[in-house]
C-alpha cells in the first residue's frame, strides 16, 4: 500500500492516528500550513487497505493506493 498525505489539505486533527486498526500512523515533526504536527505513515507495509483513514479524514488529505 502506498499512503500519501497532502500538506496543503491536512489540518492536523489526529483522527487517522487514533482510528487506524493497525496503528500505521504516528505524529511527525513535519508541520502543515496551519503549524500543527502532521501524521506520518511509519508502518506503511502493515497497512491492510481498509481505507478507514480515507473515509474519516475530514479534509480529504489522505490517499491510499495499492
Amino acid at each position: 500500500m502506498k499512503i500519501s498525505i497532502d500538506t496543503a489539505c491536512c489540518k492536523g486533527c489526529g483522527i487517522c492516528i487514533n482510528i487506524c486498526p493497525k496503528q500505521v500512523y504516528a505524529r511527525s515533526k513535519i508541520r502543515n500550513r496551519y503549524g500543527t504536527a502532521m501524521p506520518e505513515p511509519i508502518k506503511e507495509n502493515e497497512c491492510i487497505g481498509c481505507k478507514l483513514c480515507e473515509r474519516l479524514c475530514p479534509d480529504g488529505a489522505i490517499n491510499v493506493e495499492e
Binding site: K11, L56, P58, D59, N63
Partner: peptide, 28 residues
C-alpha cells in the same frame, strides 16, 4: 489529495472553512 474528493470538489475553493476534526468532511 484524496482521488475521489479531487474529482468532486471545487479545488479553487479549498481549504474548507471547517475546523480541524470537524465531522462535516466525513459526511461530505
Amino acid at each position: 489529495m484524496n482521488r475521489l474528493k479531487e474529482r468532486y470538489l471545487r479545488l479553487d475553493a479549498l481549504p474548507t472553512l471547517f475546523c480541524p476534526g470537524c465531522g462535516n468532511g466525513i459526511v461530505q
